[in-house]
């Protein structure tokens, strides 16, 4: 299974220019070792910090899936199937979400397999999501032709319980579109936010025996620099590939879902958790209700 992350640097609010740039990336991908799955960051076609402009720059999920599939057929390869996951601002009949979709594009049409709505909307410090957006209420794993996956968006993955629940629900590959403004320059050599992401992703992947495909937005937005660092982590927690912090690029890896079984056999923590989690949760709810 060939995976490609397109680490994009969108022009703020210029959807058409960003779609053209994505088409360019599709052309590049199809010309050399075409991928089976393409993952893009959070707010990939608009930029992240939109404030009230989320209402101008949101999409219906079905409409966007159709546009992305059309772009793949036009600029990629119409006869070749591909799956694409990307983050966007969703308008669901006047309720707005920070969302990510997963679409399976086949030569004869496309199927929107899943839409995840970000559950943890950061609304502190530089972040103001809940002022403009509604919270997602469900975390679901979904089936693809490559196995069961889950989508988590940025802060969803800062809470260890979320990837844990995704894994317990059967997800074997976690896709994490993100837009992470960089801060913390104590060093050495790396921003604090980047180090934190690496630690979290490696820990989650190795604890649950899952692949993690993390797609980070890059470029500056009004002084806030998005920290790219798109990466692919294997089920033992090894970083297979990491993009630079700044600048658009493509990150590729060939991943082998059987590695998940091998990793879980040697470190069966997920199985242990599935046995104990009901007791833990019952205990929590007893104490808090």
């Amino acid at each position: 299974m060939k995976v490609a992350i397109v680490q994009v640097k969108p022009r703020k609010g210029d959807v058409e220019a960003n779609m053209r740039a994505l088409g360019d990336a599709f052309e590049q991908l199809i010309a050399d070792n075409a991928p089976d799955l393409i993952v893009l960051p959070e707010a990939a076609l608009t930029g992240y910090f939109l404030e009230g402009a989320v209402y101008d720059l949101s999409f219906r999920a079905e409409e966007l899936a159709e546009r992305i599939a059309g772009l793949w057929r036009e600029r990629g390869e119409a006869r070749r199937a591909v799956d694409i996951a990307l983050g966007f601002y969703e308008n669901d009949g006047g309720t707005y979400y920070n969302a990510a979709l997963y679409v399976n594009v086949e030569p004869d049409g496309e199927r929107l397999l899943h839409v995840h709505r970000k559950m943890f909307l950061p609304t502190y410090g530089v972040f103001d999501e809940e002022r403009f957006l509604s919270r997602g209420r469900r975390l679901e794993a979904f089936d693809t032709r490559f196995g069961r996956m889950a989508l988590l968006i940025c802060e969803d993955a800062w809470h260890a319980i979320v990837p844990t629940v995704a894994a317990v629900k059967g997800a074997r590959i976690l896709l994490i579109p993100s837009a992470s403004p960089g801060r913390g320059f104590e060093g050495p050599g790396e921003l604090e936010t980047v180090t934190r992401w690496k630690h979290m992703l490696q820990l989650y992947a190795s604890e649950h025996g899952v692949y993690i495909i993390y797609a980070g937005l890059t470029g500056f937005e009004g002084g806030k620099g998005m920290t790219g660092s798109s990466s692919i982590v294997d089920p033992r927690g090894e970083l297979l590939a990491v993009a630079p912090v700044l600048g658009p690029c493509i990150v590729r890896a060939e991943i082998e879902p059987r590695e998940i079984d091998v990793a879980r056999a040697s470190l069966p923590l997920l199985g242990d958790l599935q046995a104990v989690l009901p007791d833990l949760l019952a205990d929590v709810f007893q104490e808090t209700t």
């Binding site: 960089g182 320059f185 104590e186 060093g187 050495p188 050599g189 790396e190 921003l191 470029g219 500056f220 002084g223 620099g225 700044l246």
Partner: peptide, 19 residues
């Protein structure tokens, strides 16, 4: 207050180019 000055310099130069 500790700062990796080389890291910050690269960041700020990228910021200026982008802006």
């Amino acid at each position: 207050l500790r700062i990796d000055a080389a890291l910050a310099v690269r960041w700020l130069e990228a910021f200026l180019r982008d802006e």
